[in-house]
Design a protein around this nucleic acid. Structure first.
Length: 810
DNA sequence: TAATTCGCTAGACCGA
DNA sequence: TCGGTCTAGCGAA
């Protein structure tokens, strides 16, 4: 018997000689990545039956229809599950046979329900064996020829924290049109960046001798060079920027054309392109393909980063403040053909992979932790959503607790669920105007803490055992069990406890230490998942959907925040605003921050379980404004300034990407001057100056761009907005734009409607903009509501005008 | 393939 | 040409 220990990087399944499904594990050991085969684990699913013995006999004797041969169930075994009776576990020779039978088994007499029939085989294996990707495994194996066959496997005792061999790549390609076509356009350069060094591989002899450049004879050798590099370096994580749809499929297709194979998979396979809706996911077997573009999209969705555009240049600038010049496709071709500027192109190519690697390295720890937590490969979590995370974790915990997992809803059910909506958080209309000494209180992890404290879960909802002695009643009148812990809240509780411990431990560490970074990534991963539970309850495709539970959560949230507001006023504070989990109170002259803390303490003493009110901060001044229409105060828009002069701007145009920089920056300046000094005269002067500059045609183009995303097929728009119009015009000029594209447009001088005037930024000459539009529709609206609160009006901006008489501070 | 609701605003669209 | 209504996008939590 042989033993091996290593980190589990990947797993897949293949078909053996007897058409049986075999799990393959890719394990990083001392000798590099090795493949182990698991032959004893069989695909299975469950059925709930009327009579175990009868059903078992019937199922075992039955011949099911297969594509070629008849199918027999390998084994039907009775299993005990805590949340179901009469459960049979049906095992199969292969996943294909399982797929065939899971349809036909519905017709078998005595079979009431099918369960867990759509869990991916590999995922099933990892759950059942309690194995975590990106963590250690210990294997006992035997050799069969060249193959290593698993006898026994278990999770390693040691926790992996080490670095993975990571490398980023990037291609430059030839293109006569706007987009390169791998069927005819060659790869010109490939850059490879590792944490230590970078290399650009190309065929241009002129670049010979340049540092960090390798010249090869032709394109085929270029690809060979990359392949060799990946193999020799033993790369475990290969990073790209949009390699899912561009780099990897391109390399694969070019290889095919050159009669070679881009066989970088550990098993000798080429990257596999999986269609995923409108885009691709490209997987390399045994190596984790980490697409930094996918990463950025997920981080944006989870609200971890906030970006205007997702191209590498914008991301680098937003994350690192470094300006990275973009070389456009046609220029690349020009440089290549003329030979002028090749050095620049080399460095551009190099930078792309260097920055791609940097982005990935910053967030890899977080995603490695997510991967371990939900038992999905890094490749999968790199492309997952909030529901995927929760579902994956819950399926795993369900197995741990010996319960059957609920099925996914069918499409009819999904449609039904989509018709139902529920009430969300409470938003209090703010008191408009300027305020001083504002304390912002908020509930720490409001939704998870409600779920835990009130035991909210689909199976504790209106439980049988508490029907007489309901204690835990939601404001919706539904109640939750007071005797048994619910499944969802117990999982949440476990995550919360782990997070608390980690946070405690990391407090003792240096912020720059490796251990701190690891723990911080882990607590962050836990937080992301914790916060996704509530949304998952109300998500129509959820396996644990329970709209009553979701309703109860939000009803409780409204209850607690309203109570907090009430109590604060009772204590002599003035509550000026509140949104879902936060409450803004003005500290009156006779009170201090100490009183605020006492108040919080008092509230906390009355809150149940995990619920906790916290002091988010104390601000020197703040402003709320009235809405454009109706005269009421605007919710979800405010600005605060703290004692150090730090601004916090929320909801205003300043934080929105669909406003021009000239309007956003001016608005920020106005807010700053108003909040810092309380005197807006200077602000007004600055606005006038900006207006003057706009009138004179001197405002630079980059301050005028408005970004808006195309969110559906361009043909499906009922109302043709400026971004759609600009996109359509740009397509006629050969641009490739569509769903998901972020359109940066400028309102030019030519045209009738705003849409007519909108043109893609890159087609607009400096100075060609509609000054009236930018004054009337951008600058003025962005600042008017703020200065109005101080008694000024539009006439003060446009003309030299009268001065305001009102004093804003009363 | 896909977490939720609440809220603001712009600009097109459409009928008078 | 005006004003109300609807579509659309983005942000807060």
């Amino acid at each position: 018997m042989n033993k091996a220990k290593g980190i589990l990087l990947d797993a897949d399944s293949v078909t053996g000689k007897e058409n049986e499904s075999i799990i393959r594990l890719y394990v990083k050991g001392e000798k590099g990545i090795e493949i182990f085969e698991e032959r004893s684990f069989k695909p299975y699913f469950y059925v709930i039956v009327e009579d175990v013995r009868k059903a078992k006999k019937e199922l075992m004797e039955r011949e099911f229809e297969g594509k070629e041969e008849k199918i027999r169930i390998l084994n039907a075994e009775e299993v005990k599950k805590k949340n179901a009776e009469n459960v049979l576990k049906l095992s199969f020779n292969s996943t294909n046979e399982l797929s065939e039978v899971r349809e036909q088994v519905k017709e078998v007499e005595g079979v009431k329900e099918r369960r867990e029939y759509d869990i991916i085989f590999v995922k099933r294996y990892l759950i059942d064996k309690a194995l975590e990707p990106m963590n250690y495994v210990e294997i006992s194996y035997r050799k069969e020829g060249k193959k290593k066959v698993v006898e026994k496997i278990q999770k390693g005792k040691k926790e992996a924290g080490e670095e993975f061999k990571t490398e980023a790549i990037d291609l430059e390609t030839f293109s006569l049109e706007r987009f390169s076509d791998p069927r005819k356009d060659a790869i010109l350069m490939i850059s490879i960046a590792s944490p230590k060094e970078s290399l650009v591989v190309t065929t241009k002899k002129e670049l010979k001798g340049r540092k960090g450049v390798k010249i090869v004879g032709n394109e085929k050798e270029m690809i060979e060079e990359l392949k060799e590099n990946i193999k020799e370096e033993g790369i475990e994580i290969l990073v790209t920027y949009n390699g899912d749809t561009f780099d990897l499929p391109y390399l694969k297709e070019r290889s095919r054309i050159m009669k070679t194979r881009f066989d970088i998979g550990i098993d000798g396979s080429e990257p596999q392109i999986r269609r995923k809706g409108l885009s691709n996911a490209t997987r390399i077997k045994g190596i984790q393909h980490f697409d930094a573009y996918q990463l950025i999209r997920i981080l944006s969705r989870f609200g971890i980063i906030d970006l205007v555009k997702y191209d590498l240049e914008s991301v680098v600038e937003a994350l690192y403040g470094e300006k990275k010049e973009k070389i456009k496709a046609e220029e690349i071709t020009k440089i290549w053909e003329s030979g002028k500027g090749l050095e620049k192109l080399v460095e551009y190519n190099r930078e792309d992979s260097v920055f791609t690697l940097k982005i990935a390295m910053d967030y890899l720890p977080l995603f490695i932790e997510l991967s371990k937590l939900v038992k999905q490969t890094l490749f999968e979590v790199n492309r997952i959503g909030a529901s995927g995370l929760v579902e994956s974790l819950l399926i795993d915990k369900g197995f741990e607790e010996d319960t059957l997992v609920p099925n996914k809803p069918n499409e009819t059910e999904v449609k039904n669920r989509m018709m139902k909506t529920f009430k969300g958080g409470y938003v209090k209309e703010p008191t408009p105007g300027l305020h001083e000494e504002i304390a912002v209180l908020d509930f720490r992890s409001l939704h998870p803490s409600i779920m835990i404290s009130h035991n909210v879960s689909p199976e504790t909802l209106n439980c049988e055992c508490c029907s007489k002695s309901k204690k835990n009643i939601a404001p919706t009148k539904d109640y939750f069990c007071s005797k048994k812990s619910g499944f969802l809240p117990s999982v949440q509780k476990e995550l919360l406890e782990r997070r608390k411990e980690i946070k405690k431990e990391s407090k003792k560490l240096e912020r720059k230490s490796e251990k701190y970074k690891l723990l911080d990534a882990r607590q962050h991963a836990l937080k992301i998942i914790l916060n996704s539970f509530y949304g998952y309850l109300g998500y129509p495709r959820s396996r644990w959907y329970s709209i009553e539970s979701a309703k109860a959560v939000t009803a409780w949230s409204r209850h607690y925040i309203r109570e907090t507001i009430r109590k604060s006023e009772e204590d002599g504070f003035k509550a000026i605003y509140s949104d879902t989990d936060s409450c803004f109170i003005v500290i009156p002259k006779e009170k201090t921050a100490k009183n605020v803390n006492e108040f919080i303490k008092k509230v906390n003493a009355e809150l149940p379980g995990e619920m906790e009110l916290e002091l988010e901060g104390i601000y020197k001044r703040g402003i709320f404004v009235t809405k454009k229409i109706g005269g009421a105060a605007a919710k979800k828009r405010y600005a605060l300034i703290d004692g150090e002069g730090n601004l916090k701007i929320v909801g205003f145009e300043y934080v929105r990407r669909d406003w021009a920089v000239v309007a956003k920056e001016t608005q920020k300046r106005v807010i700053e001057l108003v909040l810092k000094e309380g005197k807006p005269e200077k602000a007004i002067e600055e606005v006038k100056e900006k207006i003057k500059r706009l009138r004179e045609g001197k405002t630079p183009k980059k301050e005028l761009v408005i970004y808006t995303q195309i969110k559906k097929p361009l043909s499906q728009y009922e109302s043709i907005g400026p971004h759609v119009s600009a996109a359509r015009k740009a397509i006629k000029k050969g641009k490739n734009l569509g769903i998901g594209s972020i359109i940066g447009y400028i309102v030019t001088k030519s045209g009738k409607s705003i849409s007519d005037k909108a043109e893609l930024e890159e087609f607009v000459k400096e100075g060609n903009y509609d000054a009236d539009y930018y004054i009337e529709h951008q600058l003025v609206p962005a600042v008017i509501k703020i200065i109005q609160e101080l008694g000024y009006g539009k006439e003060d901006l446009i003309h030299g005008g009268k001065q305001a008489t009102l004093n804003a501070f009363k």
